[in-house]
């Protein structure tokens, strides 16, 4: 009926750069998604709990601090523990190509690096959301 894709846009970790996250949030809004934006410096526990309460289909993570290899897999793991394995988890930011295979193996569905268009992100979510 009125189903709308709900996405949590979250910034884990300690960097204070949210320009990218805001651009993505706005682009997702314009694509008709309901975007829940939680602001800076979120712990993995906060992100997963917010995702649970908001019953989102997608968690979109933005991170520029370099801690992605630790924080992204931790969020995937917490989702598993809370029986939320059906949530699509994507990430973006300054992430070296060499780290991407490891993140995907850990359960991150896709990693978007600088230069990705917002329409590519939207298309990926629309195609892969459960």
């Amino acid at each position: 009926m009125e189903k709308r894709i709900r996405v949590l846009v979250a910034k884990p970790g300690l960097d204070g750069h949210d320009r990218g996250a805001k651009v993505v949030a706005r682009a997702l809004r314009d694509a008709g998604f309901e975007v829940i934006y939680t602001g800076l410096r979120q712990t993995p526990e906060q992100i997963v709990e917010a995702a649970l309460q908001e019953d989102v289909a997608v968690i979109a993570l933005s991170l520029l601090s370099g801690a992605h290899n630790h924080l992204f897999p931790r969020i995937v793991e917490l989702c598993r523990q809370k029986d939320m394995s059906d949530v699509l988890i994507v990430g973006g930011g300054v992430i070296p190509d060499t780290d991407i295979p490891g993140l995907k193996a850990a359960g991150v569905a896709e990693v978007f690096t600088p230069g990705t268009t917002t329409s590519a992100i939207i298309e990926f979510i629309q195609t892969n959301v459960k």
Binding site: A25, A31, Y37, E49
Partner: peptide
């Protein structure tokens, strides 16, 4: 508010309530 044009929305009230999340 939901955008009357796209049907999308940015829901940002949680930003002020992060300490309540856990």
């Amino acid at each position: 508010p939901t955008s009357p044009f796209s049907g999308g929305a940015i829901l940002g009230d949680r930003i002020r309530m992060n300490e309540l999340t856990l």
